[in-house]
């Protein structure tokens, strides 16, 4: 029972983390129909910027104030949003009408650039660092003799809040209406007076801010920040992407569902089947999904038009 509750808790936290990152993939895909390969690097950037900010504000030690975590998080999200805006403006916008393969290669180029620029001595350097403890170490409460730490609760609550906020934004505001219009048809939206460029920019900024939130929470939970070109970050992004595809890419609710599902498979697969091969299960799910239901769980199948 203890093990089960423990795994369930892990599923929830990991699923929340994947959901935050998957939302960025899904938002960008929904609007521009391309996979933002550099998204996982924005996550990395968010985590490292949070580390730098916490250091600059003198909260690297233990006794940081209560408001430290929200402040660091908001600043990191703002910085990542700025980064996302810059990437879109400089690298992706000139290729809006280009074949998708070119956009994909550019995205890989951007990803490589961020990874390796981050490793420069002047920026974050090549050594892994320990993220400062911005949240209390003491467990918040206990469920079936499993201690639930603050950071897990923060992760889940924050993710739920951000997802609800996003849902509201997409379906209840004028901006969201514009986003959905652009996603439906860029040309028609432009003819109806929707400022397409602005909407795309804002989408990128929202996605990047969510990615940064994911990155910061990752850092707070696992503490260890590897160098920016480490394969671990890419794997994190890749799994979030698989979650977005499984849920139905372009679908906000689908991304959350897929994230929880992927986390469930990974955690319970590692817990009960084999602890060595969790990645294998995740990619297996991706391939099975693409074979039998390429549109994902909640996605609607699109007919390829001539």
């Amino acid at each position: 029972m203890t093990k089960f509750v423990q795994l369930l808790l892990q599923t929830l936290t990991l699923g929340s983390l994947y959901a935050l990152i998957a939302l960025g993939y899904t938002l960008v895909y929904g609007i521009l129909r391309f996979i933002n390969f550099a998204h996982s690097d924005v996550v990395t950037f968010g985590a490292w910027v949070a580390f730098a900010i916490a250091g600059a504000l003198g909260w690297a030690g233990t006794g940081s104030p209560v408001f430290a975590m929200p402040v660091v998080m908001i600043l990191a999200m703002a910085a990542s949003a700025a980064l996302g805006f810059t990437i879109e403006r400089l690298a992706y916008r000139p290729l809006r009408k280009a074949p998708r393969l070119n956009v994909l290669i550019t995205a890989i180029g951007v990803s490589l650039l961020l990874q390796n620029a981050g490793q420069l001595h002047a920026l974050f350097g090549k050594d892994p660092v320990k993220m400062p403890r911005l949240l209390s170490e003491a467990p918040l409460f206990k469920v079936a003799s499993v201690q639930v730490p603050w950071v897990d609760v923060a992760l889940v609550v924050l993710t739920v809040a951000l997802v609800i906020g996003l849902q509201w934004l997409v379906f209840r505001t004028k901006l969201g209406q514009a986003m959905r219009a652009v996603s439906w048809s860029e040309q028609t939206a432009a003819l109806m007076g929707v400022p397409v460029d602005k909407v795309v920019s804002i989408t990128f900024m929202i996605g990047s801010a969510l990615a940064a939130a994911g990155g910061v929470l990752y850092g707070l939970k696992y503490r260890q920040l590897n160098q920016t070109a480490d394969a671990l970050w890419m794997l994190l992004g890749l799994k979030a992407f698989v979650a977005a595809v499984v849920g139905g890419i372009g679908n906000v609710r689908g991304a959350v569902l897929g994230a929880v599902l992927i986390a469930f498979i990974e955690v319970f697969g590692a817990g009960y089947v084999s602890s060595k091969l969790p990645d294998l299960f995740v990619f297996g799910v991706l391939i099975v999904m693409l074979l039998f239901r390429p549109a994902g769980l909640l996605g609607t199948a699109t007919v390829e038009k001539v």
Partner: peptide
Amino acid sequence: QPSLRLRGDYLAIVTLGFGEIIRVLIKQ
């Protein structure tokens, strides 16, 4: 077999996943 029914970005992701699977298997 599975991936050439997909196009562009999806194929890239599946092949990437394949590379990772090979790596994980060899590691074991």
